[in-house]
């Protein structure tokens, strides 16, 4: 048996429902404010890694983007490119050969850029080291940077509140 088509439905008029966006706007505004508060203009200086945990410091000096030398628990990197392994460090010499040649190469390039494109070469470098790096290795890295034209050294830390 077929049903009789509903009479009520036949005469129903559709009227457009307005989507209520007010609550969504509230949420968005809060998110927007939060993100504005954490806004940074310097951009990412370090790429996070599991074997690189920065130490905490009370220093409030803001970092700038410069060439970085990262010393993780296993590797030494120059601007995120692996240069040598920590295990390869020669315990007798104070200069790390591979790091030294990489830094001098970069310094030469930077000086070339200074001549060609007038990008000033400041000799600034940021050392990004894991908090458990022993002093001996850290000193060798600092010494190597200092002997290869990059002599304005900065240590990167996490700001403590």
């Amino acid at each position: 048996m077929a049903f009789i088509p509903s009479r009520a439905k036949k005469h129903r008029t559709f009227h457009q429902e307005e989507l209520n966006l007010t609550s969504m706007m509230d949420a968005m505004t809060i998110i927007l404010l939060f993100l504005l508060k954490t806004y940074s203009t310097t951009g990412a200086i370090i790429s996070p890694s599991s074997d690189l945990k920065l130490p905490y410091s009370l220093s409030t000096e803001a970092p700038h983007k410069e060439l970085t030398v990262s010393v993780t628990r296993e590797n030494i990197l120059v601007s995120d490119e692996r240069v040598m392994s920590v295990n390869d460090v020669d315990s007798r010499s104070t200069v790390l050969g591979a790091l030294f040649s990489e830094l001098t190469r970069r310094a030469r390039e930077a000086k070339q850029n200074e001549i060609q494109y007038a990008i000033p070469f400041t000799g600034q470098i940021i050392i990004v080291a894991d908090e458990n790096v022993p002093f001996q290795l850290l000193f060798k890295v600092i010494y190597t940077c200092g002997s290869s034209e990059y002599n304005k050294l900065r240590l990167l830390t996490i700001r403590e509140k």
């Binding site: 806004y39 310097t42 000096e61 803001a62 970092p63 200092g146 290869s148 002599n151 700001r159």
Partner: peptide, 18 residues
């Protein structure tokens, strides 16, 4: 994209030029 959730800071060292 440009939010920084970890506030970084630097410590300056003084090193005589090579």
């Amino acid at each position: 994209y440009s939010a920084e959730f970890v506030k970084l800071s630097i410590r300056e060292l003084n090193l005589p030029p090579a």
